[in-house]
Design a binder for these strands. Sequence first.
DNA 1: TATGAGATCAACT
DNA 2: GTTGATCTCATAC
Length: 190
Amino acid sequence: MPANRLDRRFFARSVHKVAPDLIGAVLLVDGVGGRIVEVEAYHHTDPAAHSYRGKTSRNAAMFGPPGVAYVYRSYGIHWCLNFVCEREGSASAILIRAIEPLEGLARMRRRRGLSDERLLCSGPGRVGQALGITRDRHNGHALDRPPFALFARSDQPEIATGVRIGISKAAELPWRYGLAESKFLSKPFR
DNA sequence: TATGAGATCAACT
DNA sequence: GTTGATCTCATAC
């Protein structure tokens, strides 16, 4: 387990710098989690970002200080976890899309109702379910305080980039980052 | 392997 | 009333 914790300063930078730096970092929520292998950046100038049209009650956490969680309901069913970054004039955040499970495997399996390790956290909705993320408990919560724990990676992984998944606006922007060789991705990189 | 529908809710038009 | 930063299961090839 890497020793250095990521604090607020880590997130006080552009999403385009923070997103690749998050790959390989370890995220735990109540001691459950693992290594981040896939994220997507959402800059406020990006039509696909929830903050693009300004502050609303849903996206208010994105407009707060960097280093907090933004949690939203996706397709009426899933909770998706984002990390809020430097505002650079307005709100930006990073969607956590996939994790390589390392800690609390039993709790993840119970929450997901699944045994296949590979499918526990390979997608944003799956990450939310496996880590027990809800808006009530986690939205707007600081990432450097319990139940969150974030640890910097110890080595420099090779970062793959590609277009983001499941969006219709600004679909061509290559703002998806990940570990190309990981088998825990929601989809392979091309 | 690939494609399609259903689930389910809050923001937004 | 429509539309998602999605997932699962069923059915078809």
